[in-house]
Amino acid sequence: MDYDPMVMDDAEALGPVVKISQADSVRVKYELSNADLSFANSLRRVMLAEIPTIAIDLVEIEENSSVLADEFISHRLGLIPLNAEGIDSLLYARDCDCDGCCEHCSVRLTLHAKCTGEENMHVFARDLVPTGDRINQVLGTPIVSDAEGLGPLILKLRPGQEIKLECIAKKGIAKEHAKWAPSAAIGFEYDPHNKLRHTDYWYESDPKAEWPPSEYAAWEEPPQEGEPFDYDAVPNRFYFNVESAGALPPDVIVSEGIKVIQQKLAGLIHELAEEGGDGMNGDYNGPRSPEYGTGADGFGGYTTPFGNAGNQSSWGGAGGTTPYGTTPYGAGQSSWS
């Protein structure tokens, strides 16, 4: 950013800082500092709901003599985490040229189990077998992370019962359905001592005694006794705890999240450049921005809230866009006539 550092706080001029405090195959805990709450929250929201992953979306049941209903099993299958490595090269089914689904936009999995023994049989995610061509050898494989190598339990079969089905897994985002969420949970926290008073603690007699301190309380200076409230203070350090559901490693969730924001922005920049900044529709009757006279927009003056005639420019004598000139009320000097 090429803004004058003088207008920023000293700390902010240094730019954002990332510190990782814990990382393993299921979670990454990190601190983002010298950033704004709005950006940190964008990152949180994007990691939660907008990172593409793959999940079972269609189920064709051939045989189901289990006690569970078809749609119940379909729902359970949808929620099984599938490996999303290489999801970038998978197309959204809606963007694919094929009719329905093909290997470029979906992964097929089959499940066939019959209980032939004397005891009840457990059907696990590992029994879901990817079939047909795939973009790579791991995309769409059920995640199995337990020690026994079984994966999530799908259903149980009594002796003689059988389940046979075919699933089609598609690419999607958690904004559409939570089954596409890459993260199991995202911890997001700032200001552990509540110095900014963004939180109002409920308490019986003493909030300090009743509320346990945050795990990050030691990272920040506790407030001094009798310290006056700093109403100019803004949150500056954000503590993330990104826990993966297994589809993507936690660090990839973070970098993919930022990538999704950038793709959003790139799309908008592209569109703005394409339309040359003139996106006005002549026959548009939707919401309007606040009016002040009739400017260069060619809009009839009869639509202004105060009914001033369309022949006066808001630029003449009104002081342009001074704080008082751009309000809906203070357009021309003769607004009221």
Binding site: L272, E275, M280, S289, T321
Partner: peptide
């Protein structure tokens, strides 16, 4: 189009709809 300039906007004061 995903970005639209709302009517009533002037060069230095505009509303956009996303």
């Amino acid at each position: 189009q995903r970005v639209r300039l709302l009517p009533g906007s002037t060069p230095t004061a505009a509303s956009f709809e996303f």
